[in-house]
């Protein structure tokens, strides 16, 4: 592997002003199977790709309900993700006990980011190796955040993390302007389409993906497999036979732009610290 003298310790700077251990932690997020999220004014949908280690084992859960109004999808080290979602659950419960009202999503996200940040500044710790898409609903509406191991967090209209997430991002970038006014079901449809993009030719079935929704009048819930399969069939997005006509036409139009951003992203990655990704 590539080695350099500044990457053995989380708290050691490189002369270029980078923290390599933190960047490696963010690499761990890219290794994990994909998770995506997108939101309208009233709903947020999370979806992820289920990968099992062997034919004989089941896959690991990647979407967790935190509270009635918040849920997360993770990519990276699942074990770290579980620990963080347990932390989030307890924060929500404590807030609910004290104030009898739901914890604002933005606050939970900041607390989570602060927790991750501490690990980038202590010699005896390691950064969390997990990226979290936090979906939630509060007084100010529906929110989607991305929390990363560096302690940074961002709010998104739509986002994708994990392996081959660039394909899903390209799909979402092409469509996100319509999401604000989308209905719940339209969001789920776009989520499934975006997930299919990350599969690269593999057939989309309800066994390889999980979908969850939270929105106005709907507590965070993970859709059961039968429901997801029914939606896949309804939208005809299994994808083995290639993109449907509709998306062929769109892809032709969006191809050049999508490819350009991908290359651009790779180019900038070389020069600057990807800390803020």
């Amino acid at each position: 592997m590539f080695r350099n003298q500044y990457d053995t310790d989380v708290t050691t700077w490189s002369p270029a002003g980078r923290l390599f251990q933190v960047e490696y932690a963010m690499e761990a997020v890219k290794q994990g199977s994909a998770a995506i999220g997108l939101r309208s004014k009233t709903h947020v949908v999370l979806a992820c790709v289920n990968k099992s280690n062997s034919e004989l084992s089941s896959h690991q859960r990647k979407i967790f309900k935190v509270d009635d109004h918040i849920g997360v999808a993770i990519a990276g080290l699942t074990a770290d993700g579980r620990v963080l979602s347990r932390y989030m659950r307890s924060e929500c419960i404590n807030y609910g006990y004290t104030y009898e009202s739901p914890l604002p999503v933005g606050r939970l996200v900041v607390q989570l980011a602060d927790k991750a940040q501490v690990c980038t500044q202590r010699s005896w710790k390691r950064p969390y190796g997990v990226g979290l898409l936090v979906a939630g609903l509060d007084e100010s509406g529906a929110h989607l955040y991305y929390n990363c191991p560096s302690g940074n967090y961002f709010e998104y209209q739509a986002f994708a993390i994990g392996s081959r997430s660039q394909a899903a991002k390209t799909y979402l970038e092409r469509k996100f302007e319509n999401f604000t006014g989308s209905s719940r079901d339209e969001l789920i449809k776009d989520a499934l389409f975006a997930i299919r993009e990350t599969l690269q030719g593999e057939k989309l079935t309800s066994t390889v993906c999980t979908v969850a929704v939270v929105g106005v009048g709907e507590a965070f819930n993970i859709l059961d497999q039968a429901t997801v399969q029914a939606l896949i069939n309804e939208f005809e997005i299994s994808g083995e036979e290639g993109p449907t006509n509709e998306s062929v036409a769109e892809e032709a139009g969006g191809e050049s732009g999508g490819a350009a951003t991908e290359e651009g992203g790779a180019a900038t990655e070389q020069e600057t610290a990807p800390m803020d990704i």
Binding site: Y99, E100, S101, P104, G106, R107, V110, D138, E139, S140
Partner: peptide, 9 residues
């Protein structure tokens, strides 16, 4: 962050 505690809280 624009959030504030109300009378119920």
């Amino acid at each position: 962050d624009g959030n504030s505690l109300g009378p119920k809280e």
